[in-house]
Design a protein around this nucleic acid. Sequence first.
DNA 1: TTACATTTGTTCGTATGTATA
DNA 2: TTATACATACGAACAAATGTA
Lengths: 244, 244
Amino acid sequence: MTKHVAATVGVTLYKEVQRKMLLALSAGEWQPGEAIPAEKRLCERFSVSIGTLRKAIDELVAEGILIRHQGRGTFVATHGRGQHWFRYFKVARHDQPKTYPTSKLAGFAKGRADKETCEKLGIAGVSKVFQFANVLSLDGEPALVDDITLPEALFAGLTRARLEQRPSTLYNFYQSEFGLNVIRIEERLRAIVADARHAELLGIAPGTPLLQVRRVAFSYNDQPVEWRISNINTERFEYCASGG
Amino acid sequence: MTKHVAATVGVTLYKEVQRKMLLALSAGEWQPGEAIPAEKRLCERFSVSIGTLRKAIDELVAEGILIRHQGRGTFVATHGRGQHWFRYFKVARHDQPKTYPTSKLAGFAKGRADKETCEKLGIAGVSKVFQFANVLSLDGEPALVDDITLPEALFAGLTRARLEQRPSTLYNFYQSEFGLNVIRIEERLRAIVADARHAELLGIAPGTPLLQVRRVAFSYNDQPVEWRISNINTERFEYCASGG
DNA sequence: TTACATTTGTTCGTATGTATA
DNA sequence: TTATACATACGAACAAATGTA
């Protein structure tokens, strides 16, 4: 039987397989929405048993990176279908179940990143970024404003028109147009007071308390992809969290 | 070979094992902090193979209900040790890592549950509840106020003195004194404005915006155990969320 | 509708390695 | 050192879902 080097240096074989699969994903070899090769083929490719391969895949499925369908295959997770459409949208009416929002672009510009943005996105101070805002509504009622910053290095060729014409969610757009798949976010939340701009966009009085969500979105190799500040009007809406 | 009935009625065997394990947990057969029987014994008890048993345990470990230690055994998760001490405490200084808070009791009373409390705790309108408040501080600076409601039915014999003398976290106290193990929470967050009481407890001006966390804590069988409203001063602190 | 091949899901079990008491 | 317990890796056998001829 083949002796695997991995096992001799403290790295488990199934983790090694997992790493290689993540490489194939970030290299774009396996595209979001598409099926990856069948288990049997992957066993041959990585020279491991079915059990080891499945353990590697199990964890990626648990993380939401892959999706398995009995009888069909294993697919790269997408932000463009089913429950994953609004995987990271966590706003709902008070004590109501979550529903899907509608989105309206409110501003688009290209400029230099400020200091905080550079930190969050892990980019140099001279880097250029795209900045734009989205007003999201539930049942036609404005619920929050997203102020979004994207590094130009990752989103070369982005225009206001392309953003407005995107057929689906923002993260689906990042994925299909720029090959950037958001798989993890980090958020910090604060309560603030609405300034004039947010008040107007949300149709409320300046000074109204807002829930501010400060989010960094990451792709496969902990690469920061997006820096976003959301301001939520919690008079009728709220942010839904949950913890195991 | 034994043919399992479970497999014939659409319920997988490992899920059946999992259900039986959760029953043993909620019945108190396996106490928090203690080791459950070794895999081999559990295989015999449930008449399944090692692989099936491990699959059942794997998921419970992933949910944080059990903890495995190679060479030692599998243990019922506790809120009294290590990272789990403050598993559900998610407040930190702006852009800083999480640290542990200190707690100070601010009020204790017994009374009837109001309508919202009854809904959240799933109890009848005539039920009695305990109500108390905690002021939590980071580095000696008040960061938030927890207003907590507990159903008397589950916490019979609770007194102010017992609460104040608890040696550890609140959830550890629920566990060791009342056999109630919090394994899941649901939270909804809003931005509000500080009233006089919260302002005084936090040492801030009334009208300061606060981040309000409305939490229901659940035990093993989706049984509501605690209803809590936290009000966080986010001038220097923030709520940490993250999503895979 | 039926039959079949493909693919993942579940269950079984063995052998060996590693950590702990 | 020894025994125990979990971790890893292997792979067989069959079930269930799917798509296609």
